[in-house]
Amino acid sequence: MKEEQLQVFIEGTKYFFSTFAGQQVDVGVPYLVSSDTKVAFDYTGIIGIAGARKGCVYFSAPGRLLAKLLQALGEEDLEDDNLCDVVGEVANTVSGNARRDLGPEFVISVPVIVKGQLEDIKLPREIRSFVIPITWGQDKAALVICLE
């Protein structure tokens, strides 16, 4: 069950890139990090999860990847706001996908966008996060899933 749940978030990410950006992502080997280790690039879109399982899922990417993503989406304005928007869009698609596939016992929030480090997120110490390395073209990003 747990593996399928993780797969839902991965599929959401893959779906965004293959459908909207026209180029698939490579999903790397998933590994674990302790919950106090935050895998963060420049911009992060976080969705909160509650209900059957609690925690959060976030997609974090460097500005360069997001800028290329914006261009792939036909947006010429690569300002900060737009980079935030696009990382939010990825998270939003992941969130929507999860809402559809995980059923009503999961409560899934709309994304919150964070720029820079993720210091504010407090996760239970005893659990570990799954880090799914994402490669898109030459750039690396990460999908991090932390669920109790």
Binding site: G48, I49, G55, V107, V112, K122
Partner: peptide, 13 residues
């Protein structure tokens, strides 16, 4: 059960 969304993006149940 009430899930209140905090500013950090996490739910508080």
């Amino acid at each position: 059960e009430v899930n209140l969304l905090s500013s950090s993006g996490l739910f508080e149940t």
